[in-house]
């Protein structure tokens, strides 16, 4: 097997008595996009900060681009790029000045710096804005600039902490095109996101909550766990129905989608009978019950429900 871009073993970080990251393990190869999903405060950013070498782990180990995060954080900083969730470039500097500054920080100079800047212009399309102040760019272009800054020194591992938060759908797609181009050139990308359609684009996904990785796998693998266990129920009135089905035996999750309900069940056949019974006794008008292909959103609804059912220890 090839050398992994990121390899994490039992990585843990405690702040006082709080455990922000709890024995996290995963592996990411070059050329892959790894998605981190989970609620705010789940430990995604803390994990990334440890992997970037700016926060020491309490226990466990991790290597990034072949360097150990505990022993060699300075070498790591040279081989990674980082784009943060909030726009953190210099708004009173022009696009070109921002790039020149970050380039010099990585000790790029003269011809080489100019060459790299032209290359990232070509990649991102930022060239026509080079004399524009970064502060007046739209959200999508700002993030493209942030990405351009992060890849100037040709890092082999990229950390993207909610890179598309607050960016319009069109620019979001453009940014993902860039991520694909980078991964195709052999860069490993670790992305955190709240958007399901973005999660769908990752090679690997980890759902993280309370500092722990709850599920991990490719989007396909995660979805197949739900295969044959997801029912779409079309009924009226929706609110009353949702309250009634919630108490159904054998139900593992229930989510409302517009005019329908998605029910995750342990056994499809049993569930269909119970749904019909409840509808009759509660006076709910049932217009259709179908078995459907699960989406990632359904997958995460189920994971969240299961965690809630498991009790409060999962949340601390």
């Amino acid at each position: 097997m090839s050398v992994p871009a990121i390899e994490v073993r039992e990585l843990t970080r405690r702040f006082g008595r709080q455990t922000a990251v709890d024995r996290v393990s995963f592996r990411l190869d070059y050329g892959e996009i790894f998605g981190f999903l989970g609620p705010n405060g789940a430990g995604k950013s803390t994990t990334i900060r440890m992997l970037c070498g700016i926060l020491a782990p309490s226990s466990g180990s991790a290597t990034v681009a072949g360097h150990d995060v505990g022993k060699d954080p300075e070498r790591i900083k040279l081989s990674i790029g980082y784009v943060s969730q909030k726009f953190s470039l210099y708004s009173d500097l022009t696009v070109q000045e921002n790039l020149e500054f970050y380039g010099s920080v990585y000790l790029l100079e003269g011809e080489r710096l100019r060459g790299r800047i032209e290359q990232v212009y070509a990649l991102t399309g930022l060239g026509e804005y080079r004399t524009r102040l970064a502060g007046v760019l739209s959200g999508g272009w700002k993030q493209r600039l942030a990405l351009a800054n992060a890849i100037l020194h040709e890092p082999r591992v990229l950390f993207l902490d909610e890179p598309t938060a607050g960016v319009d759908p069109l620019s979001r797609r453009a940014l993902w095109e860039l991520f694909y181009k980078l991964s195709a050139s052999g860069v490993a990308l670790l992305v955190t996101t709240h958007y399901m359609e973005e999660a769908e684009r990752c090679n690997q996904l980890a759902f993280i909550s309370g500092g722990r990785i709850l599920r991990m796998g490719s989007p396909q693998e995660l979805k197949s766990r739900l295969a044959g266990r997801l029912l779409e129920v079309e009924c009226r009135p929706l609110l009353k129905a949702s309250a009634a089905f919630e108490r159904m035996v054998g139900l593992t999750g229930l989510t409302a989608y517009g005019t329908t309900l998605h029910l995750n069940v342990q056994d499809e056949r049993e569930a269909r009978t119970r749904i019909a019974e409840i509808a009759r006794s509660e006076g709910i008008e049932l217009t259709g019950v179908r078995t459907i292909e699960p989406s990632l959103e359904d997958v995460f609804a189920v994971i969240e429900n299961e965690e809630e059912a498991r009790g409060p220890h999962a949340a601390d």
């Binding site: 040279l78 980082y82 953190s88 210099y90 920080v105 990585y106 000790l107």
Partner: peptide, 13 residues
């Protein structure tokens, strides 16, 4: 305030 420091910290500076 602008979060620039955070960005600088992940660089070798």
């Amino acid at each position: 305030e602008r979060g620039n420091i955070e960005q600088l910290l992940v660089t070798p500076v």
